[in-house]
Write a protein that binds this DNA or RNA. Structure first.
Lengths: 153, 153
DNA sequence: TTGAATCCCATAAAATACCATGCTATACCA
DNA sequence: TGGTATAGCATGGTATTTTATGGGATTCAA
């Protein structure tokens, strides 16, 4: 039994005519080991699909409750945005999930999908869009080294 | 059971036609004792591969979550950069890992790989590049003594 | 009953595990 | 201390398993 569960690596898979994509085998292994499910939703900030484990959304729900007031408009909006869009995806015996039209359209994905690990989450991109995005992020990191010191941000 | 787990020493191993390299036996022993796995990614600052234990990345994930907001661009960029590039590597019964094309290309490694201990991390270099880099670092350290005082940096 | 979703089977390629060998470093003994 | 035996290691090769992906069959629901 492994100790660490992180979505990593970048893998590119085909999307067939039916809209099926193989989930990277690493991701599947995690889902199976934790006996949970994958949840996907449209990214709020980029033209890509975002995915995570159900547990992660559960934690997010708790955080939202903690950070915003029960009756606040902020909590209302946030929960609508996140949970209104999220959907559970299970994979078949060969490890494929069936993405929805809504998600594919948002990410401009047609026949190829790039899975990008983000630790507790992952993203699914159109290959060209991801290439541009990665170049942008790396260039920025070269210019200004990332930091985790709060005072430096 | 040992108390200290540090990647040390510099060892050079062959990379075969399939891209397989023996992980230094010291490293393997650590990984086995901790029953964990190795993670590798392209160094952000040098033409080499960087590696560490899964736990190290897990801690980093927690730190990122702690230092940045769930919906922030900073968290987005950082997690893409780090985890999109990282990949788990398990070794076979003879202690070899299969490096990817992307990593080998970034480090300009063809048939020989130098493993350089870095404590919590290690690096994998092309032998010639490492020779140059080591000379440079040592020369610099001779000229300006290293310091750990924050105010001096 | 028609379209969509799910399941199952087949195949090729890639990743992984396994076996065998020569070498090196270590341990052991005189 | 010197020499030998032994265990561990690096490395080449092969076999086996897993994975991605296409296509067809079956089920489910509108």
């Amino acid at each position: 039994m492994r100790k660490v569960f992180l979505f990593m690596d970048t893998v590119i898979n085909k999307v067939d005519a039916k809209g099926r994509v193989s989930l990277p085998s690493d991701y599947r292994a995690m889902v199976k080991e934790l006996s949970t499910e994958i949840v996907c939703y449209r990214s709020l900030s980029a033209p890509c699909i975002e995915g995570c484990l159900e547990e992660t959304l559960d934690k997010l729900a708790a955080e939202i409750e903690n950070a915003t007031d029960f009756f606040s408009e902020a909590q209302d909006n946030l929960t609508n945005l996140v949970f209104g869009d999220a959907k559970r995806f299970s994979f078949d015996s060969t490890g494929r999930i069936l993405l929805t039209e809504k998600l594919l359209k948002h990410a401009q994905i047609t026949d190829l999908a790039v899975f990008v690990g983000k630790g507790r989450k992952f993203q699914i991109w159109n290959p060209e869009n991801w290439a541009k995005e990665e170049a942008r992020i790396r260039a920025e990191a070269m210019k200004n080294r990332p930091t985790l010191r709060k005072d430096a941000q």
